[in-house]
Design a protein around this nucleic acid. Structure first.
Lengths: 213, 213
DNA sequence: GACAACATACCAACTGGTTGGTATGCTATT
DNA sequence: AATAGCATACCAACCAGTTGGTATGTTGTC
């Protein structure tokens, strides 16, 4: 057949990990599931990865790469004001709650729930993914705080992680209730919290984008 | 041995489910794990439950029973003011973040992440547990809103579920970071949000209980 | 530019430990 | 003696990982 067809086979495998793990979780994922998704065989899978755990760690790293690229090019970065970027990020997180539950939920948030006590390497990779993303948000929060709430008694780091907690928790509710609506409402509450923290007036009930919840 | 020693064997089995599933998740839980925890054998386990999935559903129901009893007797109910009860609930959720991660995290929040797409009965039981608990909180929120924020553009139901989203998300962060500290910070943000929603002054930086985060 | 030497990518078939579940028997209580 | 509450022994399916092999590149050498 083809040798070195570009090594995008590895990407295909990791893409299958995104799908299967977001649907079923790490423990319920079977290597055969990944093979079936990609059209490979077991031999091919184990040529690319040492084992299931190694595969999951690679998937978490790939998730970090893909998501950081995705958010880096998101439109909310165009705002000159850092608070507008923070609120734009939150709005963006709400906008991308589209499609079926496995399509918008978080790979590493799902995995770390199962693996934190049994697979240290997976836990570390998931932590790095979540914390790395939070660190990016933290920059805008930090700038906004200097401008608008310099004396407030909360740290940009803790607020950045709090945004991730709300989003991860919203995903759990979405899974329990089988749809994104409840998650969107929680993100609305998160937005209102940030508005209140910075004394920014909310769009109010007559705005296009913000219905009562 | 002993026949009909009280049928508390069933309780012991469900207690073992709490421990094992909070440590490893539902899919990674083995029936043998439950047997080892309880000192029973497979025969004993399958005498009480039809199968692993039936067991998990029973565990979710038992979780609802145990936690609703636990929160029903919590001290924050003594407050006459409903907003004090809401804030007392949040403080209580923070106080019980003690010990190792599997000791304070949520059984049904963990399970629903894995089972929502593959085990409808488990998902429904987890949803019932989360939503049932939120409904209890919602009562105090609703009373507080009538008193202090009758015209505000958010519903008690959505705020009650939001509190659960924050708590569930805080658990994910706690798992990723291997300790309750980060979860406590997120609950602090939740408290500050509720204070801001109701225009209640926060205790501020000189209070005993609330450090900067 | 031809060719040996080697590496990469993958497949088909197999293995052995694991795991949910069952069939059956024993024992104490009612 | 009937039944609840277990234990013992066992099975069939499952599943991560292995083995041996083939086809296709790549690289260095003359």
């Amino acid at each position: 057949m083809n040798a070195t067809p570009r090594a995008d086979t590895r990407q295909k495998l990791l893409g299958a990990a995104f799908k299967v793990i977001r649907e079923k979780g790490y423990a319920a994922m079977r290597v055969d599931d990944i093979c079936a998704e990609t059209g490979l065989t077991k031999g091919g899978f184990f040529h690319h990865f040492k084992g299931k755990e190694d595969f999951a760690v690679a998937a978490a790293h790939h998730w970090s790469d893909v998501t950081s690229g995705f958010f880096a090019t998101a439109p909310y970065h165009r705002h000159a004001d850092p608070l507008d970027r923070v609120l734009g990020y939150i709005d963006f997180r709400k906008e991308i709650l589209q499609g079926e539950v496995p399509e918008f939920t978080c790979l590493v948030g799902t995995m770390v729930q199962e693996a934190y006590g049994t697979n240290p390497a997976i836990r570390a990779a998931c932590d790095a993914s979540i914390s790395g993303h939070a660190a990016v948000i933290e920059k805008d929060i930090s700038e906004a705080k200097k401008l608008y709430a310099a004396d407030a008694h909360w740290s940009p780091a803790s607020l950045a992680l709090h945004t991730q907690a709300v989003i991860q928790g919203a995903f759990i509710l979405a899974k329990a209730k089988q749809g994104p609506e409840i998650a969107a409402q929680s993100i609305d509450h998160l937005r209102r919290y940030v508005e209140l923290l910075f004394n920014r007036d909310s769009p109010g009930r007559n705005s296009d984008d913000h219905r009562d919840i």
